[in-house]
Design a protein around this nucleic acid. Structure first.
Lengths: 166, 166
DNA sequence: GCTGAAATCGCCTAACG
DNA sequence: CGTTAGGCGATTTCAGC
């Protein structure tokens, strides 16, 4: 697997930047135990090779007025690849849809949506999502509260696994 | 709503840092149209007031060897608050569970899980999740592919909304 | 209150060993 | 990978609106 190309210092860099993406390079270098220049070179390489896709501020969506979060399970009439792709393309264009994952099993897609209020979401649901071409069924569930919301991967699981293999 | 306390420059700062959390303060100041010192003060205030909860590198979880993503729908036997909280606490302790959201409707929680491979996930599912106290039912769906995975909020929707209200 | 200008300090990031 | 070193950014101080 691709993680095999990374040495322990690379993995530590990824773990540190996942936890604090705005850390200075000097502080990052100190934490991973090397000097700043090679640390910066490693970060650039990790970015270029796609291990790091970007850096994002984690904003409080409720504080910003998006009170409503909804998971929508979507079933399509046709599962031909062209039709699946067409639906995915629509999802990418809808700003209220933040995530769109294709699933196995009875439902074809799960969507995570946000909206300022219920009526905004209902309008989107009835006029856009349910009305979209090829959409057969939509079941929605409101999020009552978020108990956990961690981005990325559990690096401790990764290290544990690598130790066992080695 | 709390977003009302923010002026257009604050909202621009949030939008820019959501898009690129590692941007230098000088570049950020240039983009929002003010000089660096007040820009930095605004960022610090946004952090202190909780509008910004942190900064995270967006790592490629498949490249890091987590080939399996699963959504798990969990139903509990008891929905008393103490029992809901106990389950949430368990989820926070499981590293393979990255998100845990309480829902309305027939299912009580939706969990987003990651794992290096199917057998690791199956072991977690049978020995940990399904076996946990108060868990009545678990339905899982494998993620085939990710069509969209954007963090945070759509700031264009927010601005549009504020323009209508104003 | 806010901003912006100047100055200091520290970091970034080449080039080289 | 480390060290050196020059330039740039971060951050404080202070003055002005």
């Amino acid at each position: 697997m691709a993680v095999g190309r990374l040495d322990p210092i690379d993995r530590k860099i990824l773990a540190e930047l996942q936890a604090d993406g705005r850390m200075t390079n000097v502080e990052l270098a100190r934490r991973v135990g090397i000097s700043a220049p090679p640390c910066l070179r490693r970060v650039r390489t990790l970015e270029e090779q796609g291990y790091i896709r970007g850096y994002h501020a984690d904003v409080d969506i409720r504080e910003l007025g998006f009170e409503v979060q909804v998971f929508a399970m979507v079933g399509l009439q046709s599962q031909a690849e062209a039709d699946l792709s067409a639906f995915e393309k629509r999802c990418r264009a809808w700003p209220l849809v933040r995530e769109c994952h294709m699933l196995n099993g009875e439902v074809d897609f799960i969507l995570k949506c946000v909206a300022p209020d219920l009526s905004t979401f209902q309008t989107f649901l009835t006029e856009q999502l349910t009305a979209a071409e090829n959409v057969a069924s939509v079941k929605t569930s409101l999020v009552i509260r978020n108990a956990k919301d961690e981005p990325g991967v559990p690096f401790d699981v990764l290290e544990e696994r690598l130790n066992r293999t080695a």
